[in-house]
Structures are given as C-alpha cells and as structure tokens.
C-alpha cells in the first residue's frame, strides 16, 4: 500500500508526482493547469465574497460524506449564505506521515465531484507533510471567492421585528452521524450527514423571492448557536416554536440516548433564512422544490421583546430561553 512519507512534502520530484497524479488529475481546470504561483481570476463583479475555513473532522469518512466533501460544501455554503455565487476555491492539505495515498485520492475525488456539482473550480492549492503524530491523518484548509449578481444585498442590519425564520430542513443530522461513527454506536436506523452544497438552492431563492434579509448556515453549535449569534448582533429577540423545528426520528432517539440536545448539534447542509413575513411562503415553495430543501419550514419569528435572547415556545405553550453553550456539548450522565 502506498503511503504518504515526509518526502512527499519535500518539494522535489516525489512531491511533484503526488501533485500531478492526484491533485491536478482530479481538480483539472484551465486556471489550475497553468500551475502558476497564483491563480489569476477573471472577475466581473464589483464586490466579491471571500471566506476561509479549516477542516479537521474525525473520522475522515462517515455516513453521508467525508472530510473532502465537507471542505467543499462548507466553503460553498459560507459564500452562498452571504448571498454570493461561489466561483473559486483554494485548498491546502496538511498530511500526516503514513497517511494512505488511496485515502487521499478518495478524498480528492470526492472534493472534485462536489466542486463540480456546486459549480466551483479549485484553482490553487498547497500540500505539506508533517511527521507522524504532528497532525491527525489529514487537515484541509480552504478559501473561497464568490461573486454577486444584481439581486438584493442581504445583511443582519436589515432584520426587523415580525420577520420570519426559516430552516431549510431537519437539524442535527451531521453531528449525530459523525458522533455515531466516532463512538462506534449503532442506531435504530442509519443516520447520514446532511453535508450538501446549498448554493444553487439559495441562489434560486435569492432570484425567485424578494425579501430575504439574512442567511446563515448553522454548523458548529447548531441552530441554537446561530440564532443566538443573530440576536446578539441585531439587538432583537427571536422566538421559535419547538413543535415546528424539524428533527428526524432517528436523530431524536439518538439524542435521547446520548443526552444531547439536537438544537446544539452541527449541521453541514442546512441554512437559516430570515425573510420579510409576506414572502416567507414563496421562499418555502422554492426551497421545497429542491432536494436539499424538501423539509423546509417556518420555525419562528423575530421579536422586539426579549432583545438579545432566543426564546423557545415549548409544545405546552410556555416559553424558555435557549442560551449559548459554554463550550462543547458534553454527554450527560444524568
């Protein structure tokens, strides 16, 4: 079995061969093929969106995805929720000595496939190899560039009391899938990560409905954390209805067993949209026609009361506050 050695990071022939045989082969595009020190991009937009992210997910392969798919989708989604159309990506790999080449190729193929589906080109990259124990298998850093169409500009400052809060689908799938794989837990039915590129769907929403004011992808920290970030920055309150937040039965069951709250569990293929009340139904219509938005629904609204707080109306009609987590959500013994 071929494995990555420190020589693959030497910059010599062995490095070049790795870059040619794996990265250039699968990421192939005109800009990358020039193999210059910088990718030179033709961008007509006056304003661009620019983002960076680093991926260290463990395990690197899990039900519904892998670290490469997350790297592409995560970057694409960060651009898409800013209202931009993702165009270009970079990727830097930190590989641990001894990492199997076939796993690297599998990850790179996955990145290439998902980049194609999302319509982005991976135009520049870098590879470093570190000694055994200095990294955990593979870390990926990306950056992404997106352009703006002529549509609405969105921003947190546009949010007003009365606006509706929409989630594009069920919450908690990704975190539970990864945790289950990590701990070797078997669930009643298999739980898959929701990892997916949302740019096409969100672009359809931006083009097809007016009145979308803000979007964010509830990744680490889950839906609850994203909503808290929104109330913190906007100085407004949010109320959501517990019974309206979509959660898969299997995810609910796993969370019961593990002592976790799905509202705080990471998603990799969902977006929270805040829209003017009159266009919420139209947005839902567009989302529901899309494979990644078929469970989309309105979960609550923005309020003037309780500024900087997220409230949840339980199914018994009483409200409680949904706070920020102190750190990582730890499984409870009781």
């Amino acid at each position: 079995m071929s494995i990555i050695t420190l020589e693959h990071g030497s910059g010599g022939k062995i490095s070049h061969k790795l870059v040619q045989d794996i990265f250039f082969k699968h990421f192939k595009n005109d800009i990358l093929d020039r193999a210059d020190d910088s990718a030179v991009l033709d961008i007509s937009s006056e304003k661009i969106a620019f983002t960076t992210d680093t991926f260290v997910v463990k395990p690197i392969f899990f039900p519904g995805g892998d670290i490469g798919k997350i790297a592409v989708c995560g970057t694409v989604n960060d651009l898409a929720v800013a209202g931009a159309r993702p165009k270009y990506m970079s990727c830097g790999f930190i590989l641990e000595e001894g990492f199997p080449e076939k796993d690297l190729e599998k990850i790179v193929i996955s990145m290439s496939e998902w980049a194609k589906k999302a319509g982005v080109s991976i135009v520049t990259g870098d590879t470093k190899v570190v000694a055994r124990g200095e990294a955990d298998k593979i870390f990926i850093n990306t950056s992404g560039v997106g352009v703006f169409g002529s549509g609405d500009r969105i921003g947190i400052d546009q949010i007003e009391p009365g606006d509706k809060i929409i989630i594009t689908g069920t919450v908690g799938d990704h975190g539970v899938a990864v945790l289950g794989e990590r701990k070797g837990l078997e669930f009643e039915s298999e739980i898959y990560s929701d990892c997916a590129p949302l740019n096409d769907m969100l672009d359809q929403v931006m083009c097809g409905a007016n009145g979308v004011k803000f979007m964010r992808d509830p990744t680490r920290g889950g839906l609850a954390t994203t909503l808290n970030e929104i109330t913190d920055s906007s100085n407004l309150g949010i109320i959501i209805e517990e019974k309206n937040v979509p959660i898969k039965e299997a995810v609910k069951g796993a969370c019961e067993l593990l002592g976790l709250d799905p509202l705080y569990i990471a998603n990799e293929g969902k977006a929270v949209l805040i829209t003017a009340p009159e266009c919420a139904d139209k947005v839902i219509d567009i989302l529901k026609k899309n494979e990644y938005g078929k469970d989309a629904c309105i979960i609550g609204e923005v309020t003037e009361e309780n500024p900087r707080k997220v409230c949840l109306k339980t199914r018994y009609g009483v409200t409680r506050i949904v706070g920020m987590l102190t750190g990582e959500q730890l499984p409870r013994i009781c």
Binding site: D261, T314, Y316, V318, T319, R320
Partner: peptide, 8 residues
C-alpha cells in the same frame, strides 16, 4: 427546564 414545567 427544557419543557418549562415551572410555568405550568
């Protein structure tokens, strides 16, 4: 806490 029982 989760179900708001105190208020019920």
């Amino acid at each position: 806490r989760k179900n708001g029982i105190q208020k019920l």
